[in-house]
Measured scan of single mutants.
Amino acid sequence: PQVPQCKALYAYDAQDTDELSFNANDIIDIIKEDPSGWWTGRLRGKQGLFPNNYVTKI
């Protein structure tokens, strides 16, 4: 099955070790969508939390 993905609308710099940094237009694999607004994703071999208001699902 296809892994859900999202595209970064803005760059995000991780504020903690469990967060994921990314650049605008990066494509992130979505591991888990949480109602809190912090999703778990994977990018370039690293997994971490990121704010879903920085991305749009594709």
Rank of each mutant, 00 (worst) to 15 (best):
A14D: 02
K57S: 06
G41K: 00
I27M: 10
A8C: 09
D34Q: 05
Y10S: 09
A14M: 05
G48R: 03
V55A: 05
N52Y: 08
S21V: 01
D18E: 15
V3I: 10
I30H: 02
N53Q: 12
P51Y: 05
W39R: 01
P51F: 06
L9K: 09
L49R: 15
Y12K: 04
A14K: 09
D13W: 05
N52G: 15
F22N: 02
D29H: 09
A8K: 01
K32P: 00
D16H: 08
T40H: 07
I27P: 03
N53I: 07
N53L: 09
Y12V: 01
D34G: 11
D16R: 14
A14C: 07
N52I: 11
I58S: 10
D13S: 09
S21D: 08
F50Q: 00
A24W: 04
A11V: 07
K32I: 15
T40F: 04
S21T: 13
G41D: 01
D29I: 06
E19K: 10
K57V: 07
N23G: 13
D18S: 14
Y10T: 08
D34C: 14
L49H: 06
T40E: 08
T17A: 15
A8G: 02
Y54R: 11
D34T: 11
A24R: 12
D13R: 09
G41T: 00
C6L: 01
S36R: 12
I27E: 05
Q5A: 08
D34F: 06
R42Q: 13
N23A: 14
P35H: 03
I30D: 03
Q2M: 15
E19C: 11
D16P: 02
C6Q: 01
W39G: 04
R44M: 09
T40W: 13
Y54E: 00
L9Y: 03
L43C: 07
A8P: 02
Q5E: 04
P1K: 15
N52F: 14
I31D: 05
G37Y: 02
A24P: 15
P1N: 15
Q47Y: 15
A14S: 09
T56K: 09
L49K: 15
V3A: 15
S21P: 06
V55T: 11
L43I: 15
P51K: 09
Y10H: 10
L43V: 12
K32T: 09
S36D: 13
P35M: 12
A8F: 03
K32C: 10
E33W: 02
A11Y: 11
I30W: 00
W39K: 03
D34A: 13
E33I: 09
R42G: 11
D18K: 11
Y12I: 00
N52D: 09
G37E: 04
Q15K: 09
I28L: 15
G37F: 02
V55C: 09
L9C: 08
T17G: 13
P51Q: 04
